[in-house]
């Protein structure tokens, strides 16, 4: 019993230390960061946060990023729901190959797609809009959502579908009224993952926009005179908040969700 707690404790400290250091830095001035080594800010300052909240570029960056994340999550779930149902309930021509093909897109390196995506989304006139990033992120989020939802749907006995059809439900009505509420936790988990992977991705978001995403705005703290570590840390701390909030909401489903509903 004892060693279990020690191992877990050490691991959790290992996880928290770098984050603690980031928060610590965000309350220091750049001078203090570069001249002294202290575990706590000697003169805590809100100057870094003040700069972020008063400069509209930072705020817009946050809004822009959250916009494409939200659009992407909605699109991914909406298109993945019927497809996951098809995979979990029926066999059809080429179903295994289709599933594998989807999976390979989840695994395709974004670096491969960066340049062609730039060409494609410039050609269709979406470059520099949240839609471009939202659609581009579908390449890995849609397959993932299908994969997760299929796992959760397969856990629902097929008798439920059959009973509903016998009761005279049409497919769309059955799907929306009965089936979707049954797999609500699965949808939550899938949405969580779509949010997560769209929120954390940088390469495509940066390639498809003209430095509008929050992740690219953060690179502005690097200038000719060096890096503004305090400002960079404060921005980093702020980007942790949406993730932390989302985790809190799905904390009871996290473990099952990471197993893609397949335990």
């Amino acid at each position: 019993m004892k060693s279990r707690h020690i191992i877990l404790g050490v691991y959790l400290v290992f996880l928290m230390l770098p984050i603690y250091w980031l928060i610590n830095m965000s309350f220091k001035t750049t001078t203090e960061i570069t001249t002294s080594m202290t575990l706590f800010p000697t003169m805590p300052t809100l100057q870094n946060y003040h700069e972020i909240f008063t400069n509209p570029a930072w705020f817009d960056g946050f809004v822009f990023s959250l916009t494409y994340v939200a659009i992407n999550t909605v699109i991914s779930i909406l298109v993945a729901l019927p497809a996951a149902y098809a995979f979990s309930r029926y066999r059809f021509m080429g179903d295994k190959h289709l599933f594998f093909w989807l999976l390979t897109n989840r695994m395709a390196p974004p670096a491969v797609f960066a340049l062609p995506f730039f060409n494609l989304y410039s050609a269709v006139g979406l470059f520099d809009t949240p839609w471009a990033v939202a659609l581009a992120h579908c390449i890995f989020n849609v397959p993932l959502a299908v994969w997760i939802l299929e796992g959760f749907m397969s856990g629902v006995p097929r008798e439920i579908d059959e009973t509903a059809y016998l009761d005279g439900y049409s497919f769309p009505r059955f799907f929306v009224k009965i089936f979707v509420p049954l797999i609500a936790s699965g949808i939550g988990v899938a949405a969580f993952f779509c949010f997560m992977f769209s929120w954390v991705e940088l390469l495509l978001a940066r390639t498809l926009t003209n430095n509008q995403a929050i992740s690219s705005i953060m690179t502005r703290t690097v200038s000719a005179s060096g890096v503004d570590w305090g400002l960079l840390s404060a921005a980093g701390v702020l980007t942790l908040i949406p993730g932390a909030l989302v985790i809190w909401f799905v904390r009871n489903y996290i473990a099952k969700g990471f197993a893609l509903g397949r335990v």
């Binding site: 997560m196 940088l202 953060m218 985790i247």
Partner: peptide
């Protein structure tokens, strides 16, 4: 435990780089 453990997974990848 779950929340602390999931936290690194939700950190934007460039911020993971920045943190380290």
């Amino acid at each position: 435990t779950l929340v602390v453990m999931a936290l690194p997974l939700l950190v934007p990848w460039n911020v993971v780089g920045t943190i380290w």
